[in-house]
C-alpha cells in the first residue's frame, strides 16, 4: 500500500497528469482505501509542492500542473471515500469577492485545502457578497474564505463580516481572508478570524480554524 501512496505523491509532485487516473484506479483495485489515497498520497504530494513553491524551486506553472494532477486523481478517489474515515473534514466556501477577477491565488489555496482533505464549495471570481454568505449558510460550512488582489473590493470583505454577524453565523462559522491587498491589520480591523499571507500558511490556518 505504501508503495502506491508514495507513487501517487510522486505523480502529484512531478505533475504527471496522465498517470494520475490509472494509478489511482490501480491503487483502489489493490485495496488501498480512498482516504489513504487522499490523505497519505495526494495530500503529501501537495504538501511537497507547497514547500517547493515556498523555496522558489517551483513557480506557478508547476504548481498549477500539480493541482490539476491531484484533481484528476481525486475524480477517481472521492466517490469511493467512506465518510468519517479520518482527516480534517472542514467544509469551506471560497470566492474572490465581487469586483475582482484575479483568481489564481484562490485556486492555489483551493488546491492546497483540497489536498488537506477539506470539502470546498468554490463560487469562483467576482462573486456578489450575498451569494457567498447564503452559500455558507445553506451548506453549514465551517469556514468562509475570500480573497482579493485589489483595493476597492476590500469593502466587500467588511460586508461579509457584517452579514455574518447580523445572521448570527459567528462564531460558529469562521472567516479567513487573503490576497494581495489584504493584511493582518486589515483582518483584525474588520473582524475576520484569520488572515492567510500565502497558500501554504492558509492550510494550517484553515485547519486551526476548523478545530475551534
Amino acid at each position: 500500500m505504501t508503495d502506491y501512496l508514495a507513487q501517487l505523491a510522486e505523480v502529484v509532485v512531478k505533475g504527471k497528469i496522465k498517470e494520475a487516473k490509472p494509478l489511482t484506479e490501480q491503487a483502489l483495485a489493490a485495496g488501498v482505501p480512498a482516504n489513504e489515497i487522499i490523505f497519505n498520497g495526494l495530500s503529501k504530494g501537495m504538501e511537497v509542492v507547497g514547500q517547493k513553491y515556498e523555496k522558489k524551486e517551483y513557480y506557478l506553472p508547476q504548481v498549477l500542473l500539480s493541482a490539476q494532477t491531484m484533481y484528476a486523481s481525486l475524480d477517481v478517489a472521492l466517490p469511493k471515500l467512506v465518510v468519517g474515515s479520518g482527516g480534517v473534514r472542514a467544509k469551506v466556501v471560497m470566492a474572490v469577492v465581487e469586483g475582482d477577477v484575479h483568481d489564481i491565488g484562490k485556486n492555489i489555496v483551493k488546491a492546497m485545502l483540497t489536498g488537506a482533505g477539506m470539502t470546498i464549495f468554490d463560487l469562483g471570481r467576482d462573486v456578489p457578497i450575498k451569494n457567498i454568505v447564503d452559500k455558507a449558510k445553506a451548506e453549514s460550512v465551517d469556514i468562509v474564505a475570500t480573497s482579493t488582489l485589489m483595493t476597492p473590493t476590500l469593502a466587500g470583505m467588511k460586508e461579509i463580516e457584517r452579514m455574518m454577524k447580523e445572521g448570527n453565523m459567528k462564531p460558529k462559522i469562521k472567516s479567513m481572508i487573503g490576497g494581495g491587498a489584504t493584511s493582518q491589520e486589515f483582518a483584525s480591523q474588520i473582524g475576520a478570524d484569520a488572515w492567510g499571507p500565502d497558500a501554504i500558511a492558509a492550510v494550517q490556518i484553515a485547519m486551526n480554524l476548523a478545530k475551534k
Binding site: G15, I17, L60, P61, Q62, L64, L65, Q68, D103, I104, N107
Partner: peptide, 11 residues
C-alpha cells in the same frame, strides 16, 4: 486566461 497561459508553459 492567465491560468491557462501559465499551465501551457509546461503542457
Amino acid at each position: 486566461g492567465t491560468e491557462n497561459l501559465l499551465l501551457w508553459i509546461i503542457t
